[in-house]
Design a protein around this nucleic acid. Structure first.
Length: 591
RNA sequence: GCGCUCGUAGUGAAGUUGGCCUAUCACGCCUCCCUGUCACGGAGGAGAUCGCCGGUUCGAAUCCGGUCGGGCGCGCCA
């Protein structure tokens, strides 16, 4: 294979070689032409002397991004002519013959890492050009290494890789499906799997006790900076004869820690990965995916301010709400305008306002200080641990609202004060998720995560729950892994008992027939000796994003859809013609 | 569906409290010069109905309304 020399390899000196690549830049001195030739390994300088009349004539008309093949002799550069800035700066190739393999128009996007970078819209439209940039080249190679690490770990731990169908069935719970019509089955549709959930559980019944797959998952939901539209990848796994999530968690921890350190080059905040119950995470961090690279925990001041005469706090406490606070180190330096900005964010999350106390020069500076007694002010400072230069921000409302507001502010303050160390990785397992949760829109109890997990206490616990309150108190052995504030894994001990399935749906008012219609294969399978099992799935695009320090998941994918779910390069999705619709027995109805 | 925000030569930016904008700069592009540069250099040149439609005004890149497109967030994401 012809490739560009990537270093000043001495054994090539005075050798005749052939190299191919793209023109990175051309420097025409009139009587002497230099061309920097680039491929995936790097850059090397070609020298074309006028004595080589044919090559020189071609080189005069070469432009950036032309594709060339050059034959010539590798020469060591004389002292003073070396370029220490590039790896091959000590050598150059003196060209004998030059071949223009293809021309190129001037590019519509910037293809160098240095200097200006084109907007994302253009980069995605011309992704094949964007991928020529060294940083994107590096991302693709790193991602390939990453897959190797994943596969090697799973293989060494005796997991069997099984691929499951892409043409699958629509599932009633969860994200919106991509539907696929079939010519041979008019009026019927496959669905692309949101995850191989049911198939992997059926593999447990099928005697494959340790399954994994780098699975493509499909979801038709609006994207985010950390969430791809359409298709994405999960390291999906499941283990039989496991009835405690701790088995899965401890099995997978070494892989993730190794990815963070050996692969990612980061330092772990804690070698021991904490298990934090869901409710505790919400109370302490205001999030079920807290970033543990920094503290700033939420402090409950409801007891300390129980007797307060300050109207806002008093009213909330009397109606069963809470008063909580976070202490922002260095927060006293925030300007009025900056605090207004954070207040706006708090309001977006449902807060009425944002009370605060700044601690400056031994004094409490605050619009609300005059409403609080000296004892109360002392208690606040004691509980929050605030010292001079800090600021304490308050949230007061129903517990859930306060947690949400202060949780968001905790993250925003950490961004503002640069507390999210990019060289560190903080991992945590969030455990004991509620089995059900209250759906505010539908005003009823519904599945919080998915209907496939096992409630703590099994079928007896379900049968004992009568009131909504009791139902909402049910806990599942369900767990998420969190990395630097991103949810990177979700898993559970699964339900392998048909009676639990019936009961879990029954508590929500669904008849046995509904469950049988929707989950027939699984229910039937569970009647034939289904082993207890548990598993999880890691979002591997997102993990890679965090480990490579990117803040947009599209940066780590070769050909992503844009933020509106459109492939601006391939122009998908697109209309299809009438003949194709007819073959599928479909008709488009104008809405 | 909603909120915030952005849209100016091929690319990236400046201008946005209305007039000095006949729109500025850098990179790129074209022509010419140049034998040691390395993001070469020098001289000259072309290239923009300021996303689109409408309004206010003597006058709009700039203000207002609408619309389209991008980004971020909310909803949503078992």
């Amino acid at each position: 294979m012809q490739r560009i020399l990537s270093t000043n390899t001495p054994e090539y000196i005075d050798q005749t070689i052939s190299v191919s690549g793209w023109v990175n830049s051309r420097r025409d001195h009139g009587g002497l032409i230099f061309i920097d030739l680039r491929d995936h390994t790097g850059i090397v300088q070609l020298v074309i002397n006028p004595e080589q009349r044919e090559a020189f004539g071609l080189a005069e008309h070469v432009r950036d991004e032309y594709v060339l093949r050059a034959n010539g002799t590798v020469k060591s550069r004389e002292e003073g002519l070396k370029n220490p800035n590039i790896a091959t700066g000590g050598i150059e190739i003196v060209v004998d013959t030059l071949e223009v393999l293809n021309k190129s128009e001037p590019l519509p996007v910037a293809t160098r890492d240095e200097g200006q970078q084109s907007g994302e819209e253009l980069r995605l439209k011309y992704r094949y050009l964007d991928l020529r940039r060294p940083s994107m080249q590096n991302t693709l190679r790193r991602r390939s290494e990453y897959y190797k690490v994943l596969r090697q770990y799973m293989d060494e731990h005796e997991f069997t890789e099984v691929t499951t169908p892409i043409l699958a069935n629509s599932s009633p719970e969860g994200a919106r499906d991509f539907l696929v019509p079939s010519r041979v089955h008019p009026g019927k549709f496959y669905a692309l799997p949101q995850a191989p959930q049911q198939f992997k559980q059926l593999l447990m019944v099928g005697g494959v006790p340790r399954y994994y797959q780098i699975a493509t998952c499909f979801r038709d939901e609006d994207p985010r900076a950390d969430r791809l539209y359409g298709d994405f990848y999960q390291l999906d796994l499941e283990m039989a004869f496991v009835d405690d999530g701790e088995v899965v968690r401890s099995e997978m921890e070494p892989l993730i820690k190794n990815l963070a350190t050996d692969f990612g080059g980061k330092t772990l905040v804690s070698e021991t990965i904490p298990r934090i119950p869901y409710q505790e995470a919400m109370d302490r961090y205001g999030s079920d995916k807290p970033d543990l690279r920094f503290g700033m925990e939420l402090i409950d001041l409801s007891d300390d301010l129980g007797g307060t005469e300050f109207g806002v706090f008093k009213g909330t406490l009397e109606s069963g709400g809470v008063v909580k606070a976070i202490c922002v180190p260095g927060g006293a330096s925030l300007s009025r305008k900056q605090i207004d900005g954070f207040t706006e964010i708090a309001k977006q999350e449902g807060a009425g306002g944002l009370a605060y106390i700044k601690y400056e020069n031994g004094e409490s500076v605050s619009p609300i200080a005059k409403f609080l007694t000296a004892d109360e002010l002392t208690a606040i400072q004691l509980q929050t641990g605030a010292t001079d230069g800090d600021a304490v921000f308050f949230g007061t409302d129903k517990r859930a609202v306060v947690n949400k507001v202060l949780g968001r502010l905790r993250s925003e303050f950490a961004d503002h004060f640069e507390l999210k160390d990019p060289n560190k990785v903080a991992l945590a397992w969030i455990v004991d998720f509620p089995f059900y949760e209250y759906d505010e829109t539908a005003r009823k109890v519904d599945f919080g995560h998915n209907p496939f997990s096992m409630p703590r206490g099994g079928v007896e616990a379900l049968r004992a729950a009568e009131t909504d309150e009791q139902k909402l108190a049910l806990v599942a052995d369900q767990y998420d892994m969190v990395m630097n504030g991103y949810e990177i894994c979700s898993g559970a001990v699964r339900n392998h008992n048909p009676e639990v399935m019936y009961e879990a749906f029954g508590l929500l008012g669904y008849a046995r027939e509904y469950v049988e219609e929707k989950f027939g294969a699984m229910l039937t399978a569970f009647k034939f000796g289904a082993p207890p099992h548990a598993g999880c799935a890691f979002g591997i695009d997102r993990i890679f994003m965090v480990l490579t320090g990117e803040h947009n998941i599209r940066e780590v994918v070769a050909f992503p859809k844009n933020g509106s779910g459109v492939d601006v390069m391939m122009q998908s999705p697109s209309s299809i013609d009438g003949a194709q619709l007819g073959e599928l027995s479909l008709k488009i109805v104008e809405s």
